[in-house]
C-alpha cells in the first residue's frame, strides 16, 4: 500500500497540470451535458438565467449560522447560476425546468475529473494485459457515472421539490416510487463511486509499484 501511495504521489507531481485540466473540463462538461439533456428532453431552449451573489451569500450564512456543523450543508445548497425555462401560461410565470450551477457540486465534479485524469494516465501507462486495462477503464467509467449521476443538479420544478439527482432518472422515465426510493441512496452511490475510483487508482498504482520493484532491485544490484 505504501508503495502504491508513493506511486500515486509521484504520478500526481508529474501530471498535476493535466489533472487540473481534467477536473476543469469534467466540471464544465457535466454542466453542459445536463443542460443539453434538459433541452433535448423538454424540446425547448432556456428562456431565463439568474446569477446569484454566491460569495456574499456564503459570507452571510457563515456569519448568521451559530453552529459550525450546520454551515457546510447549507452552503452546499447555494446556487451560483440558475438557467432554465419559465412557463408564462399561468400566473406570473413558473419555472418548468432548470439547471442549477452549484459551486459545491462543481468542486466535487472537479475532484472527480482530476481523479479520472489520474486513473486514465495510470491506465495509459499500464503495460499489463489488455483485460486488466479494460477492467480498470470500465471501473473508472462506472465510478464516474455513479458520482456524476448522483450529483446532478437539474430541477424539474414540481411543487415542493428541490434540485435532486433523481430528476435525471425521472426525466428518463423512471417511476416516481422508484425515484423516491433511490433518492435516499444518492450519497451512498456517490461514496461508492468515489470508493470504486480510488480503489481502481490504488490497484493500478499497486501493479505499477510491483512492476517497478524488481527493476529497482536489479539496478541496485
Amino acid at each position: 500500500m505504501q508503495a502504491a501511495i508513493s506511486v500515486i504521489i509521484g504520478q500526481v507531481r508529474l501530471i498535476w497540470p493535466r489533472m487540473l485540466l481534467w477536473g476543469l473540463a469534467f466540471a464544465i462538461l457535466s454542466q453542459a451535458v445536463m443542460l443539453l439533456a434538459l433541452i433535448a428532453r423538454f424540446g425547448a431552449l432556456p428562456n431565463y438565467v439568474t446569477f446569484y451573489h454566491w460569495i456574499g451569500n456564503v459570507a452571510w450564512i457563515i456569519t448568521s449560522t451559530p453552529s459550525w456543523s450546520d454551515i457546510p450543508p447549507i452552503i452546499a445548497d447555494e446556487w451560483l447560476i440558475e438557467i432554465g425555462r419559465m412557463n408564462y401560461d399561468y400566473g406570473t410565470g413558473i419555472s418548468e425546468w432548470s439547471l442549477n450551477v452549484m459551486p459545491s457540486r462543481l468542486m466535487l465534479l472537479f475532484g472527480l475529473g482530476a481523479l479520472i485524469g489520474l486513473s486514465a494516465d495510470l491506465v495509459r501507462r499500464e503495460s499489463c494485459s489488455i483485460p486488466a486495462r479494460r477492467g480498470a477503464t470500465l471501473a473508472t467509467g462506472a465510478a464516474a457515472m455513479l458520482v456524476a449521476m448522483t450529483n446532478a443538479t437539474m430541477s424539474w420544478v414540481v411543487c415542493c421539490a428541490t434540485p435532486t439527482w433523481v430528476v435525471g432518472l425521472s426525466m428518463m422515465g423512471l417511476g416516481v416510487s422508484t425515484s423516491l426510493a433511490l433518492e435516499r441512496l444518492g450519497p451512498v452511490f456517490s461514496y461508492l463511486g468515489f470508493a470504486l475510483l480510488i480503489a481502481t487508482i490504488l490497484g493500478l498504482a499497486h501493479r505499477k509499484s510491483a512492476r517497478q520493484s524488481p527493476y529497482k532491485e536489479t539496478t541496485h544490484a
Binding site: 412557463n87 401560461d89 399561468y90 413558473i94 418548468e96 424539474w156 420544478v157 414540481v158 411543487c159 421539490a161 425521472s170 417511476g175 416516481v176 416510487s177 425515484s179
Partner: peptide
C-alpha cells in the same frame, strides 16, 4: 404515478 409540475400537468 408520474411526477409532474402544476404547469406541466395542466
Amino acid at each position: 404515478l408520474k411526477n409532474q409540475s402544476p404547469a406541466v400537468g395542466a
